[in-house]
Design a protein around this nucleic acid. Structure first.
Lengths: 358, 358
DNA sequence: ACTGGCACTCTGATTATGAGAGTGCTAAGA
DNA sequence: TCTTAGCACTCTCATAATCAGAGTGCCAGT
């Protein structure tokens, strides 16, 4: 059964109030704060109903109500209906505009993470583009020592990755430069996918015909782009603001706090968490046990993606307690993701015009 | 007045016991644990003396004693005299041997930090070599866009840094390669200091004589090595194990914990702290308010340095509560620093033999 | 110089108490 | 039928009270 208008309002008022104060909300405090023209007793009846339907719960028999995860979910889903309950979100909306162009995408993402955590006072998480999904702009090889080579791969988004490998035969830096030159001519502008395909075809064709340089090019291409992921970890993660979490009453329990902090040190867990939801458009909100990790740590996650053109590159998000200020955070994450996308777009415009002039 | 033998023993026993249990130590518990052939009353007298001399204090009038910072200092300074009090350190000593050769010094240092924090259960801090003090092995330039260039600098220790800058005139990747080639011929194997000197001399000489390539070489050299520090931050920091600190009763106070965590997020504070004591040989221990930062956060710091030849490259250390297990941590930090130095030494041997064969 | 004994002090845990907040229920009113 | 006022009930949280335990300092005796 869908909720009638008044119940909806009461539920949202309770969630709103609990998010603000972290105290269980009683019937009286609602009539005081949201003058609805009804008495506390009426509110009590409504609250009893809402509890029966699983939107609210009581931490102990004679306390006020607090939202359940289902309650938060409803609140978030109907967030932008009663404008009166979220008049304070504008203050954050403009913050994303402070982001500016940087030399590399890594630097930009680091700024983004710092900004998000500073503004939100929660934990910010930002992932770098999966290297495998970006377009390669250029590769350079650097000879480290005998038969040990480093490849520096630069994507069109200004994403830089190093990869190390051994080569069977010793190559001088001159050789490497020549190889890089040829390689760039062949593969620049393609994605890993495309490179892989092209490479396979070319290797087929060249199998018998022996050309030393081309052989090396193909071999190093394979080493650089196909064998494993460049640099070991494919997805880098930027995280800031963990210390803010200590201020929240939600994590007053030491064990919870401890678990959370340990999890933050294992960045891979977080990367997995974020990767899981890549691919969907716009801002998304995951509340508590809608995801096992979040549930275990009494957390919620608000994420969006930044992209170039229509290709999703990475994730921008905020992780906070279930009792998070969704009404502020959702617009913040949204505007930030868009701003990052716009900056990337602009830098790639600049790129193109520069290529034109060249 | 110097302490007599028995007082010394009692003091060390108290520190030892307090480090183990975190409870104030009473006279009786000493006679029980360290059968010294005297009664608690005697111990009490000795303790009263030690307190008068500032080695001990009572958290409240009728509790046992806990060490003051002066007490810890004495304990650490005389740590290796009564072997009986530190029979348990061997278990950690071997751990540093698990470190192995990695492709870059960065990767090795990251391993080191993880190992230290894992073994010690405190916070590990490791700084990368100051780029300015290492020998340059090779530089490559990569054209990012019109008049925007990235320099990849590789030091002889396998330390890699990127630096970005604008150049007034557009240079193709071919130009850049040629420039890099010449530059490497001129400056490879020198430190920043040496490069700076050589560069100044050369610029003087070439002032009138106009050679385009050489001009570019000198200009890019200046940009790469002289203007500011490469990559912005000169000293990178690796830090692991912050969550372990939550387990310690020493940080049960929320404000202390919070302050500490915030400090950890501002890595620069920590870098400064570590840099301050660079230059001294061997393991060093800084206890509490011997340094303002440590004092503020009830912490101590055990550091040593790793080097190549006789040049100090960076710092390896452990930060923990003043009530830290010095007897285990000091040997651990010592052996780790030595192991890292050895690994670097070996890799530079390999280097040389490879150069010889080339 | 050391020790046993004793009075004294302070903490920390446990228990008791009471105000406050909130509920559910019932019965009366619109 | 929906709403409301009133009331008894329950539970928490803060404060106070009590008490065992641990430790000290000091004194007198060995």
């Amino acid at each position: 059964m869908p909720l009638d208008d008044r119940s909806t309002y009461v539920l949202k008022a309770i969630v709103f109030s609990y998010i603000k104060t972290a105290f269980p909300v009683g019937s009286q405090s609602i009539t005081r704060s949201f003058d609805m023209g009804v008495s506390p007793a009426t509110i009590r009846n409504i609250m009893a109903d809402l509890e029966a339907q699983g939107f609210l719960m009581q931490p102990h028999p004679s306390a006020g109500r607090i939202p359940t995860e289902k309650g938060y979910r409803f609140y978030v889903d109907h967030l932008f209906q009663h404008a009166g309950l979220l008049n304070d979100r504008d203050e954050m909306l403009g913050q994303a505009e402070h982001l500016v162009q940087r030399e590399t995408i890594q630097a930009l993402l680091q700024d983004t993470s710092k900004l998000l955590s500073g503004v939100s006072q929660y934990l910010a998480v930002v992932t770098a583009p999966k290297f495998s999904s970006t377009r390669i702009k250029q590769v350079e090889f650097v000879r480290l020592r005998k038969s040990s080579v480093m490849a520096v791969c630069i994507s069109q988004d200004g994403f830089i990755q190093n990869k190390f490998f051994e080569v069977p035969e010793d190559l001088s830096q001159k050789d490497l430069n020549k190889i890089a030159d040829t390689l760039n001519g062949l593969y620049s502008g393609l994605t890993l996918q495309e490179i892989r395909q092209k490479l396979l075809k070319q290797m087929q064709k060249m199998k018998d015909l022996y050309d030393h340089l081309l052989h090396e090019v193909l071999e190093l291409t394979r080493r650089t782009f196909i064998d494993g992921s460049p640099g070991g970890v494919d997805a880098e993660l930027y995280m800031d603001g963990a210390s803010h979490m200590l201020d929240l009453p939600d994590f007053a329990d030491f064990r919870v706090m401890k678990g959370l902090l340990s999890a933050f040190e294992e960045k891979e867990v977080i990367v997995q968490l974020l990767d899981k939801y890549i691919g969907t458009e716009g801002v998304q909100v995951y509340i508590g046990s809608e995801n096992p990790f979040l549930g275990d740590h009494h957390c919620s996650l608000v994420v969006s993606h930044y992209k170039r053109g229509d290709q999703i590159l990475g994730t921008v998000g905020i992780l906070g307690p279930t009792r998070m200020e969704y009404s502020k955070i959702i617009p913040l994450v949204d505007s930030t993701a868009k701003k990052v996308s716009r900056l990337l777009e602009e830098s790639s415009m600049e790129e193109k015009s520069s290529l034109g002039e060249n």
